[in-house]
Design a protein around this nucleic acid. Sequence first.
DNA 1: GCAATAAGTCAGAAAAAAATGACTACGGAA
DNA 2: TTCCGTAGTCATTTTTTTCTGACTTATTGC
Lengths: 103, 103
Amino acid sequence: MTTENREEKEETCRVQGLLKLLSGKWKPELFHLATLAPLRFNSLMRRLKGINKQSLATALRELEDAELLEKSVISEKPLHIEYQLTEKGKSLIPVFQQLEKIM
Amino acid sequence: MTTENREEKEETCRVQGLLKLLSGKWKPELFHLATLAPLRFNSLMRRLKGINKQSLATALRELEDAELLEKSVISEKPLHIEYQLTEKGKSLIPVFQQLEKIM
DNA sequence: GCAATAAGTCAGAAAAAAATGACTACGGAA
DNA sequence: TTCCGTAGTCATTTTTTTCTGACTTATTGC
């Protein structure tokens, strides 16, 4: 069996979607912040230095659509919205920790 | 301590570089193929359907620069080049396996 | 009622990533 | 010496992503 032949067992990469979802200029850090505490839009605008509303809104929506984050309306003094990790989102935390060890 | 206050312990995301490296249109699948067997340029051109030389060359160089892949000249019949995972590259395999479970 | 805070949307511009097509360089076979 | 396979590079175009600035909607404080 030559090295060339060994390459035959083709199979599409299933990780692609998740990597695409978590990549880009802001999403890795956004996800990381989400692992620490619930998040609010304007707070994120301040903490992700240099981001703009459009990009933040898009990133949040994509993570929400993928069910890694969920949105909830908090009925406190200034009525506001919080984003937090779903169970699926939390299941990614150990993966991130492993990645940190490798780098 | 309010939810807002809890967000204060800022810390940059260390995973960003690796996610950036492994994302993009072709790199996840390229890396995945690399986990299966050593790879050659023209074989990859055929297997990554729709890719072009430029993009493949760039992806390979980036993974090589990050020391996830290494290049070696094989002195066989038609002298050629093989790309294979480094030890650092191999350490990513279990991470990918974990990601696959989550999806 | 008027301004401020909170959480956005939208259209267009700029920047970054990916694709195209032509070209290069080397070794081996005919 | 000419052609083929292998492994690319380079300049330019196209596509995708990100940014900018103006505008929106709802709630709250004065």
